[in-house]
């Protein structure tokens, strides 16, 4: 949505409309020039320094193994974050449940997974098939078994990697989600109850969408953190992600610096994309919150659902409406 900047009250009959030049800001222009010069020097230093070996950076930037590493890193980040978010919402809702067993389980989960290092957890998941050779579903403490499978076929290195990352991350996210849920005014749930909405629906339709506003910024942080935490999956060991792939190449050709730069470029690129997605989500869930009441200080926010074609029309209606409002 393009930001449509338009002077206040355009189209209104204001004979003495003010048109003035903005405040002169000499200081900020000087500062901008200084910063630009410094930045240019820095870039030139980096690009022209032969020790960075940009030709090698360029050669390996789109290397097959590197690209595969980028793919796996992205995949691990996305899968583990999605699973972690779903788990975290469940944990946070359990934490606020009326049922003490559910509350206890959630508390214990968060305590355990936050309390042990993620590296250790990943090692454990890597050893899963050794520690627990067969997974089965049956009646506990009897020999009745409905279904069973070899752990090795289910908990592959890749699966162990995202399971380990997701379970750990869920514990952190659960606290973020809980803080978001608690920030929503209890009057919201009461109003929804009074309308006959049931508990699960109130959570889904009323509480969560508002909590999202508070949940998203720290979750964006966590996602970008996760992007880099994926390099720890060598503990499993899973060795196809970006950090490991570039490291392997660096060791082979004895050129650590250019390959670190290759990895950094990709991490930066993915981070930038994630930041764009985050800001789109923030805008979506911020709907209705950024707006100021009509006629208060500051610019009126663009009206929802308004098309570019009919701004004047709306301004007229707004005025008429304000007029009627006071008469009603």
């Amino acid at each position: 949505m393009p930001h449509h900047v338009e002077p206040d009250g355009e189209g209104l009959p204001i004979p003495n409309r003010i048109s003035a030049k903005p405040v002169r800001r000499t200081g900020s222009i000087v500062a901008a020039v200084v910063v630009a010069i410094l930045a240019a020097m820095l870039v030139k230093g980096l690009v022209t320094n032969p020790r960075f070996e940009w030709n090698i950076v360029w050669k390996y930037l789109f290397n097959e193994r590197v690209l595969e590493g980028v793919g796996y890193t992205l995949l691990l980040t996305v899968i583990s974050m999605v699973v972690a978010i779903v788990l975290a919402v469940i944990l946070a809702i359990m934490r606020k449940s009326v049922n003490p067993v559910l509350r206890g389980v959630s508390w214990f989960y968060i305590w355990f997974f936050r309390g042990t290092p993620v590296y250790t957890q990943l090692v454990f998941w890597g050893l899963f098939a050794v520690l627990i050779p067969r997974l089965s579903i049956g009646i506990p403490l009897t020999s009745v078994e409905f279904w069973s499978v070899d752990s090795q076929t289910v908990i592959t290195a890749f699966n162990a990697a995202w399971i380990g990352l997701a379970l750990n991350e869920a514990a952190y996210l659960a606290e973020i989600v809980r803080a978001g849920l608690e920030a929503v005014d209890p009057g919201q749930a009461e109003a929804a109850q009074a309308l006959g909405m049931k508990r699960s629906m109130i959570m889904r339709r009323v509480i969560l969408p508002q909590a999202m506003r508070i949940i998203i910024p720290p979750t964006g942080n966590e996602t970008i953190g996760m992007l880099k935490t994926t390099s720890l999956v060598l503990a499993v060991p899973f060795t196809l992600e970006l950090q490991y792939a570039t490291n392997a190449i660096a060791n082979r050709i004895y050129k650590p610096i250019p390959l670190l730069i290759v990895a950094s470029i990709w991490y930066l690129l993915i981070t930038s994309i994630l930041m764009v997605i985050q800001s789109m989500l923030e805008k979506h869930f911020g709907k209705g919150f950024e707006a100021r009441p009509v006629g208060t200080k500051g610019k009126q926010p663009p009206l929802p659902g308004k098309t570019e074609g009919e701004p004047k029309d709306d301004v007229d209606k707004t005025n008429e409406a304000a007029f009627l409002g006071y008469n009603a």
């Binding site: 009441p293 009206l303 409406a321």
Partner: peptide
């Protein structure tokens, strides 16, 4: 009396 305020968010209303 709010037939002309259908698409306003609560924060845009008095």
């Amino acid at each position: 009396g709010l037939g002309d305020r259908l698409d306003y968010y609560p924060s845009q209303l008095s």
